[in-house]
């Protein structure tokens, strides 16, 4: 039982990280109709941007918004220089180009920061204990941060004109244009939002463990699994998807070795694609 609760804690932490990534993937798919393979590496980029700021002597939580801004700008630049030219071609070409982007980003990060593991803060954190359950302060920060960000995203999507425009455009591109919605500005805001969320996911991932140039790539599969579970193109579904995948991955270590964690995510994704490709929440935006 203790094991189960402890793993549940880890699952919620991982789920929070996956959720932040999955919302971005879902938004991008909704607006631009392609699976963004470089999303994991955008997370890595966000984490390492934060690391660069931290190395100047600032605390991680201050570095986070700065890294978000840096990553969002880079995401917009990538879109404007690479993806924008390919928008009128078949979606599969965008997908392949994002794959190339992923490789490029990863190599660039490795070139600048080196191939070794790095950490935001050295030393040991004293964990909180409830009975036999151990929770690190960073864990609370990650889950709390994810909740705050999800609330901000919800507020943005449901209450701002740009958020409504995003939902409208993911629903019907032509009609959105006929209603006076500026497509290119919506696309730009989509990248800003997805970039900020990916940064948070990357930074949280780095806080939970370590930073490494392939950290984002390694987590891309679970992020995609979460996106598909929630119904691709449906940001609210991504929240549920992220939590389910995160918890399932951690709980699976009770019965099988931890190296199979990504396999669990993969199995859930395949099962979903076979039996319920529209996601858990049918028909909801």
């Amino acid at each position: 039982m203790i094991d189960f609760l402890q793993l549940l804690v880890y699952g919620v932490v991982l789920g929070s990280i996956l959720t932040l990534g999955a919302i971005g993937v879902s938004l991008i798919f909704g607006i631009l109709r392609f699976a963004h393979f470089a999303h994991g590496d955008i997370m890595t980029l966000g984490a390492f941007s934060a690391l660069a700021v931290v190395s100047l002597g600032l605390p991680v939580l201050v570095a986070l918004p700065i890294a978000m801004a840096i990553t969002a700008v880079i995401a917009v630049v990538i879109d404007q220089t690479i993806y924008r030219r390919l928008r009128r071609t078949a979606p599969v070409i965008l997908l392949i180009s994002s794959f190339g982007m992923a490789l490029g980003l990863r190599s660039l990060i490795q070139l600048i920061f080196g191939p070794n593991n790095q950490v935001f803060a050295k030393g040991i954190q004293m964990p909180y204990r409830w009975g036999d359950i151990v929770v690190k302060p960073d864990h609370l920060l990650i889950v709390g941060g994810a909740i705050v960000l999800v609330l901000v995203v919800h507020m943005f999507l449901s209450h701002t004109k740009m958020g409504k425009a995003m939902r409208a455009m993911s629903d019907n591109v032509d009609l959105a244009a006929a209603c006076g919605i500026p497509a290119e500005r919506v696309v730009m805001w989509t990248w800003i939002l997805a970039g900020c969320l990916a940064t948070a996911a990357g930074v949280f991932l780095g806080m939970d463990a370590q930073l490494h140039p392939v950290m984002g790539w390694n987590i891309l599969l679970p992020v995609f699994a979460a996106t598909i579970l929630g119904g691709i193109g449906k940001p609210y579904g991504a929240i549920a998807g992220g939590m389910v995948i995160g918890i399932a991955m951690e709980l699976s270590t009770m019965v099988m070795p931890p190296v199979y964690k990504p396999a669990v995510a993969f199995a859930i994704m395949v099962a979903m694609l076979i039996w319920r490709p529209q996601g858990i929440f049918k028909g909801q935006a």
């Binding site: 939902r167 629903d171 019907n172 244009a177 006929a178 006076g180 500026p182």
Partner: peptide, 23 residues
């Protein structure tokens, strides 16, 4: 672009009705 024409007061409807189906 279509949205710029919309803001100039030019509005269209579609022959095959279009709607935001999830709203």
């Amino acid at each position: 672009a279509p949205h710029e024409r919309f803001h100039k007061g030019l509005v269209r409807t579609f022959q095959i009705p279009q709607e935001f189906s999830r709203m």
